[in-house]
Design a protein around this nucleic acid. Structure first.
Length: 508
RNA sequence: GGUCCGUUCGUCUAGAUGGCCCAGGACGCUAGGUUUUCAUCCUAGAAAUCAGGGGUUCGAAUCCCCUACGGACUACCA
């Protein structure tokens, strides 16, 4: 039973990978790392018609940004190379032939058009057509045609596909690590195409052949594959590989936050959150879909959030580093039902991770934003500002909103606050406060603060009223960190200028 | 239509072998406190008749059955 753990993440390069796919990759990664196994990236590009340039590079970049690493794969090579199915094309045919020779598959010459016609005919009778045990005897294939006819058609290069010959009797059992025993009667399954007329295998064949050849021990994939898992089990049996068949775990789906249905590529920008790890631009339409990276999410937060969509450790701990996830992860704690994505929780996770960053680290992230606005500042000074506002952020991009008053004087003043706090004598009191500030010759914040407080108290004034008005002229609003910390940071001269400007601008 | 999977607060979920669950945590929400302000933080609260109905049992969110609802799949797509 000692089997080396080898798992694969096997996306098809038909577009950007969405977060459901990322979660599948993550669970594979956590599982592999925990058990000292191997994580493989295999590209399943057997459908040349849906190939999208750039998608493969996108997948690699996105997973790399998130810290999901591969031991083998298209981009890093490995002992089972190549890892791209289009590069493995010559491998598959022999297995299809073997299946035919063993009576597990057959040639089918039906054209797509004739099949479509049959399908429509069934539909008009309110029935569903399936190429299976019951219908294959009335269709054009090597089961109904004479041996001579078949060889003639083959010799004539007539287009054909190779279909799996599903047994008429018997039950197929899939033992799923998450769902338990799933049983289906084989005659309910259809004769899936294994090998296409263009010379490429379909997903089903390529997948089984590659998993076998690459010695995959566990197949962890989305629930959308559960219905075809019985076919896969049959394929292992037919190929004589049943004893080394990997174990299956079908993950619950990620659902739309509103309404029903699985999360789709369209939902993200419609509902105001990214469904993609990093930004993607469609090469054909040039349409841009936003990504977590560009939206200001920290990769660790995205990982943490994704890990909890369908899995939990059974404790109350919610913040997990990748290392902790690797340690705590287990397949039997994966839930069976689909999870709706929640933007608010995602934000919360990001906030938690943002707070773990030092002021210095935040400053480094913030600096480019300022430079773009034409603001030059020393990193150390910026770090002081970041430290003052870091508790108020969910995203790095919130930094500007939370700290813009450090860099530019207010141009407008909060109307509500004026109404509430600004009195007739406010201006003259602020004049007095300017005098107090002027007195401090090297400027000392604490002393200035104490003196202002003393002024308010000595004159029997309302603390909240004066302080809020002082804040109003300095910040422009009633928000922000400690007022004297702000004054200290912008400097005495600037503070006095702002007070003067405020007095001049604010009229009752 | 058919096959398969699922169903605990608005959301993510806890809930081995039925009793400690008139259901716990987190996000969000509401209120109070802290703060010269806002945010943070602290405290409290509202929020699931455990999809519904039948059983089994002294006792069920937990076991069984039925129903409903939701989802996936049903391509020479993956």
């Amino acid at each position: 039973m000692e089997r080396k753990v080898r798992v694969r993440f096997a996306p098809s390069p038909t577009g950007p990978l969405h977060i459901g796919g990322v979660r599948t990759a993550l669970y594979n990664y956590l599982f592999a790392r925990q058990l000292g196994g191997t994580m493989i990236l295999r590209i399943e590009d057997t459908d040349q018609g849906r190939f999208v340039p750039g998608a493969e590079a996108y997948i690699i970049e996105a997973l790399s940004w998130l810290g999901i690493q591969f031991d083998e794969g298209v981009h890093v090579g490995g002992p089972y190379a190549p890892y791209r199915q289009s590069d493995r094309k010559p491998l598959y045919r022999q297995y299809a032939d073997q299946l035919i020779a063993d009576g597990w598959a057959y040639y089918a010459f039906d054209t797509p058009e004739s099949l479509e016609e049959t399908r429509k005919r069934y539909e008009s009778e309110k029935k569903a057509f399936q190429y299976d045990v019951f219908t294959r005897n009335s269709l054009v294939n090597s089961l109904t045609l004479s041996a001579e006819d078949v060889s003639q058609r083959l010799a004539d290069n007539q287009a054909y596909v190779i279909r799996f010959k599903m047994p008429e009797t018997g039950e197929v059992v899939v033992n799923d690590l998450i769902r338990g025993r799933v049983v289906v009667h084989s005659n309910l399954l259809d004769d899936k195409v294994l090998f296409k007329s263009d010379g490429m295998p379909t997903y089903h064949l390529a997948n089984i052949v590659d998993d076998h050849l690459m010695e995959i021990s566990h197949v962890i994939r989305g629930e959308e594959w559960l219905p075809s898992a019985p076919l896969h089990v049959m394929l292992y049996r037919a190929l004589g590989w049943e004893s080394t068949m990997p174990e299956f775990a079908h993950l619950p789906l990620l659902l739309k936050p509103d309404g029903n249905g699985k999360l789709s590529k369209r939902d993200g920008d419609r509902l105001g959150f990214p469904v993609f790890p990093i930004q993607w631009q469609d090469p054909k339409t040039a349409e841009i879909s936003s990504g977590y990276r560009e939206s200001g999410y920290i990769p660790e937060a995205v990982i943490n959030m994704l890990a909890f969509l369908g899995w939990n450790p059974g404790t109350t701990q919610e913040i997990f580093s990748m290392e902790e996830l690797i340690h705590a992860f287990s397949i039997d704690r994966i839930s069976k039902s689909g999870a709706k994505f929640d933007v608010e929780k995602a934000k919360w996770f990001n906030q938690q991770y943002l707070r773990q960053l030092s002021a210095q680290e935040l400053a480094v992230l913030f600096m480019p934003v300022l430079n773009e606005k034409g603001i030059e500042i020393e990193l150390s000074k910026l770090a002081v500002i970041c430290d003052l506002v870091k508790e108020r952020l969910s995203f790095v991009k919130d930094l500007w909103e939370q700290s813009c008053f450090f860099f530019t004087p207010p141009t407008t003043y909060d109307e509500q606050l004026i109404k509430k706090r600004w009195k007739e004598d406010t201006a003259s009191h602020l004049q007095q406060i300017i005098q107090i500030l002027e007195k401090h010759q090297p400027f000392e914040t604490m002393l200035a603060h104490d003196n202002v407080v003393a002024y308010i108290q000595d004159n029997g004034l309302n603390m909240g009223q004066i302080m809020n008005c002082l804040r109003l002229v300095i910040v422009g609003a009633g928000t922000g960190p400690d007022l004297f910390a702000i004054i200290n940071t912008i400097g005495k001269e600037e503070a006095i200028q702002r007070i003067n400007k405020g007095i001049a601008s604010i009229k009752l």
